[in-house]
């Protein structure tokens, strides 16, 4: 399996679009590649909607095989909405950072918008209730966060989250989930990381940050 780029994944409004290139590989190779792609990404695609492009490349049998693999990894079949405008921004975006391992997002994430990031995420804006950021690396939010954050989505327990104003109800690091009691003190700048398999949230300070040895 040296040729491993016959499947690409794109975020569109309706969910994740799996684009298959059937020119260079057999169906079995595609299935293996899909399986290993999903396995290596851990929870990253958990509960996402999927679409297949283009379904006419496969016969019914092959299609149901692919769907089975996707559904085994907790993806759900999405519905393609007929869209009139091509300019529409997708509410579920996937970013692959170019030339670095961080993505800078300079807008607020509103309810219903979901952003997947391969790498670290730096958000200069708010994340409103119902908005989601899922990153394979660390997340830093310079704003109010009322939505959902998931750092280390592929299973990296060394990932951390820093939020300027933490007003969220839940955050996730790797496969740990922390619920945050409402009315947690509203001092700005909080750091969340995993200690002894549990998520802890503390006030952020650069020195304490060093002692935590969070190196990815």
């Amino acid at each position: 399996m040296e040729n491993k780029n016959n499947i690409s994944i794109k975020g569109i409004e309706e969910g994740l679009l799996f684009i298959f290139d059937t020119n260079n590989s057999t169906f079995n190779e595609l299935c293996n590649e899909l399986e290993s792609k999903l396995q290596s990404s851990g929870d990253f695609f958990f509960n996402a909607d999927y679409l297949i492009d283009d379904p006419s490349l496969f016969n019914d049998n092959e299609l149901s095989n692919i769907e089975q693999i996707l559904e085994m990894h907790s993806l759900h079949k999405g519905q393609l909405i007929n869209r009139k405008t091509e300019t529409e921004e997708s509410s579920e975006a996937v970013y692959h950072p170019n030339g670095g391992d961080s993505v800078l997002i300079t807008q607020s994430i509103r309810s219903g918008q979901k952003i997947h990031i391969y790498g670290n995420a730096i958000v200069m804006g708010d994340i409103n209730a119902g908005g989601e950021i899922i990153a394979t690396g660390n997340i830093v939010v310079m704003g109010s966060c009322r939505g959902l954050l998931h750092a280390g989505a592929e299973g990296n327990k060394n990932c951390f989250i820093i939020v300027y104003h933490m007003a969220l109800q839940q955050l996730r690091i790797a496969d740990s989930v922390a619920t945050i009691p409402s009315g947690m003190d509203s001092e700005p700048l909080k750091l969340a990381c995993i200690r002894d398999n549990e998520i802890i949230i503390t006030d952020y300070s650069p020195n304490q940050f060093k002692t935590l040895h969070l190196d990815n």
Binding site: E13, T85, T87, E88, E89, S90, S91, R110, S111, G112, Q113, N128, A129, G130
Partner: peptide, 19 residues
């Protein structure tokens, strides 16, 4: 109300996306 404000937030996102 929090529910109405959350829905308004969603709508604003959709309006911005639809330009």
């Amino acid at each position: 109300e929090v529910s109405a404000v959350r829905d308004a937030d969603r709508i604003i996102g959709l309006l911005e996306a639809a330009e």
